[in-house]
Design a binder for these strands. Structure first.
Lengths: 126, 126
DNA sequence: TATTTATATAAATATATACTCATATTATAA
DNA sequence: TTATAATATGAGTATATATTTATATAAATA
């Protein structure tokens, strides 16, 4: 596996607004106006993120009159994202919270003391 | 789909060094020393990233004597990452390059002029 | 052809993230 | 018990990324 290449893709997906733009487009073909309307992000912000997605070859653009339509280069990406969504929804809550911090170590304990992990109730193994 | 939650996970995976640490651990159980040895990252850097992965509930830690062993909380993540790897390896080269910039628009042209996209050879559609 | 609509872009700013440095903790060995 | 090995952590710094601001381009319309 190539960590560098993957990290680039993950980094691009690792922004909630960019993801919302991607999910908004889905497997369809959307004009920038539609995206702005659906997300309520500013025009410049949408264009900024669309450029990033386009330059990463995740989206392709096509002008039609005054409008520019965007769609996925490879729609399989959506299926992968969907699988990640299932995975995330099964994860411990912490990563889904504002200040996610899995209690590993949990409050009052320390990783160095041997007891941590919300679900494992680990104890020091000698 | 929850863009915010997914973005958090993608963001954590969107760092090549963190990914290399994850791939190094794989479905095994690795001491920090092993990770340092395999990656040749500094001890502090490895600990820094391990903390991030641990606090996101991606990794769990277990002390055994002086050593602390790390392993995936849910090994299915590796399968997902592997699928992403396949996807990335099929992508146009640009995202895999140092300065990835899909020629959309390509050099000399402009997205506004209607011709861009390495593989689509798009022309203006009226 | 002047104006408006749709969109892009460069540059400035704000914010978040990665990395390093110095130091602390725990366990083990001498 | 002291020293050493394994690891963690807080804080500072460097770097990258997101967002906004101001402006530009292209097409459509008046």
């Amino acid at each position: 596996m190539n960590a560098e290449h993957m990290a680039k893709l993950f980094k691009i997906l690792g922004d909630d607004k960019r993801l919302r733009i991607l999910l908004c487009i889905g497997k369809n073909r959307c004009s920038v106006s539609e995206i702005i309307g659906n997300t309520s992000f500013s025009q410049t912000l949408v264009s900024f993120h669309l450029r990033i997605l386009r330059e990463a070859c995740i989206l392709k653009a096509e002008r039609q009159g005054a409008f520019i339509y965007y769609q996925l280069v490879d729609a399989e990406l959506l299926d992968l994202v969907s699988k990640f969504n299932e995975f995330v929804s099964k994860m411990p809550l912490e990563i889904r919270e504002e200040e996610y911090s899995c209690p590993c170590p949990p409050t009052g304990n320390n990783i160095l003391t041997g007891r941590y992990g919300k679900f494992s109730n680990l104890v020091l193994k000698k």
